[in-house]
Simulated assay, not measured.
Amino acid sequence: MRMLHSIFASFKESVCMRKDKSAVSNICGSSHSQASLSRAIHEPLFHYTSGRWLYDEDLQLKCQYVKFNVDSLRERGSQVVGARCCQISKLSEGLYNKVFSLETENSKEILARIPNPNAGSSCYVFASEVATLDFVRLPEVVGWSSSSSLSHPNPVAAEYILMKRIKGRQLSEVWPTMSEAQRFRLVKNVMAIEAKLAGMSNIASLL
């Protein structure tokens, strides 16, 4: 991302230094050209880029495609952190969500999760998930919106959850080095947590 911005800045500067004023007007003075370049830079954020499908790939990719206002998401992140968000990058994506890292100029970071169209009724899914995360308090949710309509106060134009990043290592990184006993204890602990949540009679009241 930084490299693309650097290339664009260098290109713009070299064009503006040319004596041909018509070229300067056509390229540097054209907001349409800059907007087109911005869309091209942001487009990979909207697409699924983690794999391929052997069957009906066009339909699968369409289900994974979600467009949102990148600048508005950065601005929302800046408001939450209290510092200007200068970079956004995609961390990972599954079948139903994309996760982005929002980094600020003072080296702070928050994560943004945006659902894909195939995630279901996003309004209810997100409201339920935010309520659950708020209940277990891990990770800490610092902002969210379940509305994707521009008619509602959500300029991001997509549902999103902003949360603090949990320090640590991915389970996929340490799993190969764990002993059978360690793996068993881990799975047992996870099952105990899930059983406790599933056994709550007032879980619906979280909403």
Rank of each mutant, 00 (worst) to 15 (best):
Ile166Ser: 09
Ser33Met: 14
Leu162His: 04
Arg74Trp: 00
Ala198Glu: 02
Ala83Tyr: 01
Leu171Val: 09
Ser201Met: 02
Leu111Ser: 06
Glu159Ser: 12
Gln87Ile: 03
Ser179Arg: 14
Leu162Trp: 09
Phe46Ile: 02
Met3Lys: 14
Gly199Arg: 04
Ala195Asp: 14
Gly77Asp: 02
Trp53Phe: 15
Val70Trp: 01
Ser122Val: 13
Ser33Trp: 14
Pro176Asp: 12
Val187Pro: 10
Ala9Gly: 09
Leu186Cys: 11
Glu180Tyr: 08
Glu140Met: 02
Cys28Gln: 01
Arg113Phe: 03
Val24Met: 06
Gln64Glu: 13
Ser25Glu: 12
Ala157Asn: 15
Arg52Asp: 08
Phe184Glu: 09
Thr49Met: 10
Leu45Glu: 05
Thr49Arg: 11
Arg2His: 06
Leu133Lys: 00
Lys19Met: 12
Ala35Met: 11
Leu54Thr: 11
Thr132Phe: 04
Cys63Pro: 00
Val156Ile: 04
Asn116Glu: 11
Asp56Ser: 15
Gly82Phe: 03
Ser128Cys: 07
Glu13Gly: 09
Gln34Lys: 04
Glu109Cys: 09
Lys21Asn: 08
Arg84Ser: 13
Leu150His: 03
Ser6Gly: 03
Lys90Thr: 02
Asn106His: 09
Ser201Asp: 13
Tyr65Leu: 15
Tyr124Arg: 10
Gly143Arg: 04
Leu186Pro: 00
Gln87Met: 10
Ile7Asn: 04
Pro117Lys: 00
Val130Pro: 11
Lys108Ala: 05
Gly77Arg: 05
Glu103Pro: 03
Gly51Tyr: 12
Met200Gly: 05
Leu171Pro: 03
Ser36Gln: 13
Asp71Gln: 13
Trp175Cys: 07
Val80Ile: 15
Lys21Trp: 07
Ala35Gly: 00
Ser148Gln: 13
Arg76Trp: 10
Leu73Ser: 04
Tyr65Ala: 08
Ile27Thr: 02
Leu54Tyr: 08
Ser149Asp: 10
Lys19Tyr: 05
His42Lys: 13
Ser33Tyr: 15
Glu180Ile: 11
Tyr96Glu: 07
Ser38Lys: 11
Lys188Cys: 13
Glu103Cys: 11
Glu43Pro: 01
Tyr65His: 15
Leu206Ala: 02
Ala112Ser: 08
Gly143Pro: 07
Arg39His: 11
Gly120His: 07
Met178Phe: 14
Arg183Ser: 09
Leu45Pro: 01
Gly168Pro: 09
Ile88Phe: 12
Ala35His: 10
Ile7Asp: 07
Lys12Ser: 08
Asn202Tyr: 06
Ile27Val: 13
